Amino acid sequence: MNALVLPAEGPTDGGGFTPPGIGEAGLPGAWFHWDGITRYQVLVVLSVVIIAVFFLLAARKGKLVPGRLQFAGEAAYGFVRNSIAKDVIGGKDFIKFVPVLFTLFFFILINNIYGAIPFFELPTFSHVGGAYALAALVYILWIAVGIKRNGIRYLKLAVVPSGVPWPLLFLLVPIEIISNFIVRPMTHSLRLFATMLAGHLIVLIAGYSVHFLIDQENVLVKGTSILVVAGFAAMYMLEALIMVLQAYVFTLLTAIYIEGALHADSH
């Protein structure tokens, strides 16, 4: 990994350690001199190309007995269709939401996995703008689904719990409004952003620490770099797992919100 071999940028105070920032990860910023184009945007476009090419190739020659590429594509599609859309939304409604859930899962997965790939080393959603944008799209989607299924009364169904004595509604309705229409989209986005940013910064700091410790003259201090390498490896594997889990969690929550909007009158 680049983090293990590159020194931290910027001056140090008396040989002290200067921890890296997220801006030091991934594709060199010096590569991007075009106005308005950032590393994040390049990686997002690349993720779309990767996903499109893979699934187009997987579906190009559909056979009754699939080859390895077709099998991988079908397994990926089946996971989202059956384990998320069908299990959560269920009934006859789930099938029309499979495309959006499928797209969300693999778009987030590829953009997260960048952080575990040498040279790229930058999960796109470590920038909060991308997480906000996806959460906003999901927010608009489930509200639109609720209104389409239940009419404008969905706004009432979403905030007025059934079977609750009316005096308690003065307390519960404001809580439901804040929870469903303010807190929900905020946590949906920040959960993805915070885990990607925090995990990757920890790995970056651990990697740069190895370089710093090896440069020290004291032999005992140099020896502690072995412990940091072990910690770096453990954190790297943990971060890779979290990258996959966060793609799953974001998509799963989207399915839950859609299901709640579809069946608001029965909750």
Rank of each mutant, 00 (worst) to 15 (best):
L6Y: 03
P11T: 03
G14K: 02
G14P: 01
G15W: 08
P19S: 11
P19K: 07
G21A: 05
G26Y: 03
P28H: 01
A30C: 00
T38Q: 07
L43M: 12
L43I: 05
V44H: 09
V45N: 13
L46P: 03
V48I: 11
I50E: 06
A52T: 12
A52G: 01
L56C: 10
K63N: 13
L64R: 12
Q70K: 00
F71D: 05
F71N: 04
A72H: 06
G73T: 11
G73Q: 04
E74A: 00
A75D: 10
G78L: 06
R81G: 11
R81C: 06
S83L: 01
S83M: 01
D87R: 05
D87Y: 04
V88Y: 05
G91K: 12
I95L: 13
V98A: 01
V100K: 13
V100H: 12
F102G: 11
F102K: 13
F107H: 09
F107K: 01
N111C: 12
N112E: 03
I113Y: 14
Y114I: 02
G115Q: 03
A116R: 02
A116K: 03
A116W: 06
F119M: 07
L122E: 09
L122D: 10
H127D: 10
A133T: 10
L134M: 14
L137E: 02
V138A: 15
V138F: 14
V138I: 15
I140F: 15
L141D: 00
V145S: 03
V145K: 03
I147L: 09
K148F: 15
I152H: 02
R153N: 10
Y154G: 09
V160I: 11
V160N: 11
G163P: 05
G163R: 05
W166R: 14
P167D: 07
L168F: 15
F170Y: 13
I175L: 14
I178G: 03
F181H: 07
F181M: 00
V183K: 07
V183C: 05
R184I: 02
T187E: 08
T187C: 00
T187K: 11
H188G: 08
S189P: 01
L190Q: 10
R191S: 06
L197K: 03
H200C: 00
V203W: 10
L204R: 05
Y208D: 05
Y208Q: 13
H211M: 08
L213H: 13
I214W: 08
N218A: 01
N218D: 13
K222Q: 14
G223L: 05
T224H: 05
V228S: 05
A230K: 04
A233I: 09
A234T: 10
M235S: 04
Y236G: 15
Y236S: 15
M237F: 13
E239T: 02
E239G: 01
A240S: 14
I242Y: 02
V244E: 00
A247G: 02
A247L: 03
Y248F: 15
Y248R: 06
T251I: 02
L252T: 01
T254F: 06
A261Y: 12
H267W: 06
